[in-house]
């Protein structure tokens, strides 16, 4: 599968011709709208909200946000960021309802803290993994983006970012950048292993009415297998006291594995010295 981000930066790749092609292709429209609906169901907004759309492009997902029926908690008001002028030009022609900004998400999110109820991003985050000049790095761009996003969401807010990760490493890079910014992060994968696999990064901001992280988000959904890759925090094995014999032997083994020179174990290992007097 060819990846557009390998060829050109987003502001140049999505020129007038490419933007028009992207917006008018019924196949892309269909995929975009199904992903937006999926993201909306993960956000589970119950009242009309202010939503940030990162990489809004020509407003395909935005027009879905503005057309949510009142009984489903809509219509939402959205603000879109995109780096491609041509895409925004197409959005203007389509007369979308949201406010548009020509901005690079990798430079941060220029809104004051606690602005948004939620954020969505459809097929955009993978563009942040490319640095176009030597002055910036992919890590730095991701960090600035997630820090800005974290600050601009209100407590208890959620963000769902659908993206196309190149490989496992990129998946890890994106989610660890989000976790470092303070988010509770989890990945939801639809149709994993197939050509049409879709990866959703579900981000939660602590506080508010939300219970826990992504496991709380997907609780009510069908057909979702939860794979918890988190390590349990430093569990002490039973019968092992810090400084005790079992502990010392374990530490010695650990050091031996690292290639350190370790004294052999004997019956005296971990014993207290007798008081000499």
């Amino acid at each position: 599968m060819s990846r557009p981000e390998d060829h050109l930066p987003p502001d140049l790749f999505y020129n007038d011709a490419e933007s028009r092609k992207y917006t008018t292709s019924s196949r892309i429209q269909h995929i975009q709208s199904s992903m937006t609906h999926r993201a909306l169901s993960l956000l589970s907004l119950s009242s009309p909200s202010l939503i940030l759309d990162i990489g809004c492009g020509s407003g395909l997902s935005g027009s879905i946000l503005s057309s949510v029926a009142p009984e489903d908690g809509g219509p939402h008001v959205w603000i879109g960021l995109d780096i491609s002028e041509s895409m925004l030009g197409v959005a203007l022609e389509r007369e979308v309802e949201g406010d548009l900004f020509l901005a690079d998400a990798g430079q941060g999110v220029p809104f004051r803290p606690g602005t948004f109820d939620a954020a969505i991003s459809i097929s955009a985050v993978q563009w942040l993994c490319n640095a176009e000049s030597s002055e910036e790095s992919a890590q730095g761009r991701l960090t600035r983006f997630f820090n800005g996003l974290y600050a601009s969401l209100r407590r208890g807010g959620r963000a769902v970012c659908q993206f196309y990760p190149r490989n496992e490493e990129q998946k890890r890079m994106v989610s660890s950048a989000a976790i470092r910014a303070g988010f509770g992060a989890g990945l939801l994968e639809d149709d994993p292993g197939t050509k049409s696999a879709k990866t959703y990064l579900v981000l939660t901001v602590g506080g508010g009415e939300l219970a826990g992280d992504i496991t709380g988000v997907v609780e009510g959904l069908d057909d979702v297998d939860v794979v918890d890759g988190r390590r349990g925090g430093g569990k002490v094995k039973r019968g092992e006291r810090k400084g005790g014999k079992a502990w010392i032997i374990r530490k010695k083994e650990q050091m031996e594995r690292k290639g350190k020179v370790v004294k052999p174990n004997s019956k005296y290992t971990g014993r207290k010295r007798k008081i000499a007097f």
Binding site: L81, L92, D99, L100, F101, L102, A103, Q107, S133, E136
Partner: peptide
């Protein structure tokens, strides 16, 4: 311009 604000910063200002 036409309701779209330009928030792209030149790299020395980021």
């Amino acid at each position: 311009k036409e309701g779209i604000a330009n928030f792209l910063l030149p790299s020395h200002l980021v």
